[in-house]
């Protein structure tokens, strides 16, 4: 069932907790190899900070930079930012993306993405051709402070049409999330970070087209396997599966 060459657009360096990047890679790569994962997009850090300080941002991005330096053929990076600190965010984009080795940006729950600070970040991302991996939830009972919904991302994407966004988790409540991003062709949805609920990928492909769906796992909290099941198990054709597993991310990353 396993096809080699998949690109996992969404992991976190949480393997070998407490260890250095080398240990994280050593623990993670054998599993990735078994599951046919050729390349992984890493972001955040060993610990998740909802409103990270400059020091925490720096530590997270340093950690991933070392991971990428050690295994440039296996990892690519999204620089972690806290848009509340716009000056530092813009400086970090220069340090991490303009100067490399990161290729994209990660925005988690520090600030809702429908905010002018995020527009300023997007404008530089557009100049650099850097995709933005944006966490999105429609959380039962209401989102966390600073947490973005697919509605928020759709509003941002309508203003920032030159940026490619990945709506991480497709809103979690994916039947609503897919609808929310339908009208913004510069938003893709990933498969990651929620239960392997049958029907997700079929709906995403039917509504958005296979070109707007990408495989991600949210490893190591999630398994590669449970999230790959959403692709391998979906009632979609093989061409669509190939786009989701690697073709679309090759386009996004210009590989």
């Amino acid at each position: 069932m396993i096809e080699p060459g998949a690109i996992d657009c969404h992991i976190h360096p949480t393997a070998a907790q407490g260890g250095p990047p080398a240990a994280c890679a050593d623990e993670l790569l054998p599993f990735a190899d078994r599951m046919g994962i050729a390349l992984m997009g890493t972001s955040l850090g060993p610990t998740f900070w909802r409103r990270p300080t400059r020091e925490q941002i720096t530590a997270d991005n340093d950690f991933n930079a070392e991971l990428i330096a050690r295994h440039p053929d296996r990892f690519f990076g999204y620089a972690n930012l806290n848009p509340n600190d716009l000056r530092f965010s813009l400086d970090e984009i220069e340090r991490r993306v303009a100067d490399g080795p990161f290729v994209g940006l990660k925005l988690w729950v520090a600030m809702c993405c429908d905010h002018p600070n995020v527009d300023a970040i997007c404008e530089r991302a557009a100049e650099l051709g850097a995709p933005i991996l944006q966490h999105t939830f429609f959380r039962a009972g209401g989102n966390l402070p600073g947490e973005s919904s697919p509605d928020d991302l759709a509003a941002l994407a309508a203003r920032q049409r030159e940026v490619t966004f990945i709506a991480a988790h497709a809103g979690l409540n994916w039947e609503r999330g897919i609808r929310a991003v339908l009208g913004q062709p510069n938003i893709l949805v990933d498969t990651c970070g929620f239960d392997p609920e049958l029907g997700y990928t079929e709906m995403a492909v039917a509504w958005l087209g296979a070109e707007r769906v990408v495989y991600g796992s949210d490893a190591t909290g999630r398994s590669f396997a449970s999230q790959l099941a959403k692709v391998y198990g979906a009632d979609i054709d093989d061409d669509a599966k190939a786009l989701i597993l690697h073709g679309n991310m090759r386009r996004v990353l210009d590989l």
Binding site: M1, S223, A229, G233
Partner: peptide, 11 residues
């Protein structure tokens, strides 16, 4: 069928 059965098999 709430989950894709491939999930447990692959795991």
């Amino acid at each position: 069928p709430y989950y894709y059965p491939e999930s447990s098999v692959l795991k």
